[in-house]
Amino acid sequence: MLELRPGDGEALYVGLKGFSRYSDRYALTAEEINELAKQKRVYVAFNRIKSPKEIEEAVNKLKGIEGLILNDPGTIWKLKDKHDLSITSSVGICPTNRLDLEFLAEIGCDICIIPPELNEDFAKAKTDKTGKKAYKLELFRFALMEMFYKGRCMLTGYFDGIITKKDGLCTKKCCRKWEVFMGDEKVFETSFPPQKSWLRIDGADIVKYEGRQIKSGGD
C-alpha cells in the first residue's frame, strides 16, 4: 500500500505555486518540485480549476514527477493522452458512488480519491463487472470532515467573493457561530468547524493523510 503523508511518506503530494489549493505559502516552484522528484515519488496537485491549456503549460515545466492531481473532469479528459503521467482525480470532484468512479476511470483517471465521509461505502466497490480493477482507490486515513463534502462548498465565494475552486482559498465561514432560526424564532446556536477524523481504510490502494489545512490554519 502506498502512503501519501504530508512531509515524510513514501510519496508526496505537493502543490505548484499558483495551481494548488490552500494558498501558495507552502506550495513549491517548478524548480523545487523537479529537485524533490529526484528523491521521492512526487504527485503534483493542480487542484485550482484553470483551463486545460494553462495546466498543460505548467506540467510541461515539470520533470521526473509521478503524477498529477486534477480537479476538473474536462481537464482530465483533455490531458490524459498528452502525458505519460498517472492522473488522480482530486477529492474536489467529489465522487459519491461507484458509477462516479467508473466514469472517472473511463475519462482517464488512474487513481480516484473519495470524500472521507464515504470511506465505508467504497470498501467493496473498487472492481468493475469483470472483477478487474478499473482504478486505484485512494482513501483518507486522516482528514478534516467539513460542513459540506469537499469540493461542494461555495460559502467563500458567496460571502467573500473568493471562488475556492479557482482561487484556492477558503475563509472558513463554517467556523463562525451561527444562530439557528425556526421561522422568526431563534432556537439555538451552532457552528460547523472541520472535525479531525481518523477513518477506516478497508479496500484502499493508497492512503492519504490530510495535512495542508492543518498546517496553514485553513487559509
Partner: peptide, 29 residues
C-alpha cells in the same frame, strides 16, 4: 457524473440535463 454517464449509455434516447451542482467550471467539461 456517474448517473449522467449511466443514462447516456443505457438510455441513449433520453434527453439529459445537468444541474448546477454538477460543478461544470470549464468549457472542457
Amino acid at each position: 457524473y456517474g448517473v449522467i454517464r449511466h443514462i447516456t449509455k443505457e438510455y441513449p434516447d433520453v434527453r439529459v440535463h445537468t444541474g448546477g451542482l454538477t460543478n461544470i467550471y470549464t468549457s472542457a467539461t
